[in-house]
């Protein structure tokens, strides 16, 4: 069974014999396209982004002015950068709660069902939103959140909770939470599915032994399932945090960062600066912040997967 152990060996060399030498150079033809493609379109732009971030450019005249680290200094003074950072962090924290811990519990419940058919059914049901484009779900929730006439407010007033209704996307207090909520709705099925796969791989004997010891379902969950999927949990936390710093689509589609920039995240603020306010250089500096954060989380992920390999 090929499965979760693979990421482990991801970057850790390969199984092929390593006998180099000039005679083996033609073998580069196998990797040449990928190396050029990735180097040119994935790596080079990152380097170029740092160059751009030290300039101010006027897109209309094409003038480029070298400003050193001014754009980075401006980041510190820009209150919206801090709002964005806070929102990205909120995104990360809430997503970890729902898409990691709640999803784990849900997966445990589903995998505890007796018939394979019902397990498969529930996994599939919860996964459906993850297969749908964020543009679609974003627009959908835009309608759901419409003040008074939207599905949410209509539902609340049908339940006699009309007092709770508010302009979910139109209020500075709730906009970002409304977007994050949509994101959880869309994403938790995906991680539930992955946790399900991890739980399936736990040797059955461990549960049998626990039952012999008289452990109830909760105890088994805590003593067997949780520790046996710890690696998966760790990985999911890192992946979720990385994702939270790359958020763009849902915010763009639902509020474009409004009202009053209260739901801005780094990705949309970059877009707003770079493409709406013509500040390519400043936009690039914001991009550099995203790069830095995702680099750290990416490194953590790499370290984690390698570290796990050592443990196994």
């Amino acid at each position: 069974m090929t499965g979760m152990d693979h990421p482990v060996s991801a970057v850790a060399g390969s199984g092929a014999p390593r006998r180099g030498g000039l005679g083996t150079l033609p073998s580069f033809r196998w990797v040449a396209i990928a190396v050029i493609l990735v180097g040119w379109f994935v790596y080079y732009p990152i380097v170029d982004n740092f160059v751009v971030s030290t300039t101010n450019q006027d897109i209309y005249t094409g003038e480029i002015e070298y400003v050193g680290l001014d754009n980075y200094a401006r980041l510190l003074d820009d209150p919206v950068v801090w709002i964005s950072l806070r929102n990205n962090l909120l995104y990360a924290a809430i997503s970890v709660v729902f898409q990691v811990f709640a999803a784990f519990l849900l997966a445990a419940v589903i995998e505890g069902l007796e018939s394979e058919r019902s397990r498969r059914f529930w996994r599939a049901v919860y996964f459906v939103p993850s297969a749908i484009s964020i543009t679609v779900t974003g627009l959908l929730f835009y309608f759901i959140y419409q003040p008074r006439i939207g599905l949410l407010d209509a539902g609340l007033s049908a339940l006699g909770l009309g007092a709770l209704s508010r302009p979910w996307l139109g209020s500075e207090d709730t906009a970002i939470y409304a977007i994050i909520a949509m994101s959880q709705w869309q994403g938790f099925g995906y991680s539930t599915l992955l946790f399900g796969l991890a739980i399936q791989k736990i040797p059955r004997e461990l549960y049998d032994a626990a039952i012999m010891d008289g452990a109830g379902p909760l105890r088994r969950l805590w003593n067997v399932t949780f520790p046996m999927t710890r690696e998966m949990t760790g990985l999911m936390i890192i992946v979720t945090i990385t994702g939270a710093f790359q958020v763009f689509n849902e915010v763009m589609v639902m509020t474009a960062g409004g009202p009053n920039n209260s739901s801005q995240v780094l990705g949309t603020w970059l877009y707003q600066q770079g493409f709406i306010q013509n500040e390519f250089g400043y936009g690039a500096a914001i991009a550099a912040v995203i790069f830095l954060v995702t680099l750290v989380t990416g490194m953590a992920q790499l370290w984690y997967t390698r570290h796990r390999r050592v443990q196994l």
């Binding site: 160059v51 030290t54 300039t55 094409g62 002015e65 400003v67």
Partner: peptide, 26 residues
């Protein structure tokens, strides 16, 4: 005031310039 100059900043930003949005039009 900031020491601002419209320049090609050596090799590094030559990259940026080469792809820069349309240099000086008539």
């Amino acid at each position: 005031k900031r020491s601002s100059h419209v320049v090609a900043v050596a090799a590094a930003s030559a990259l940026a310039l080469s792809a820069g949005p349309g240099s000086a039009r008539e």
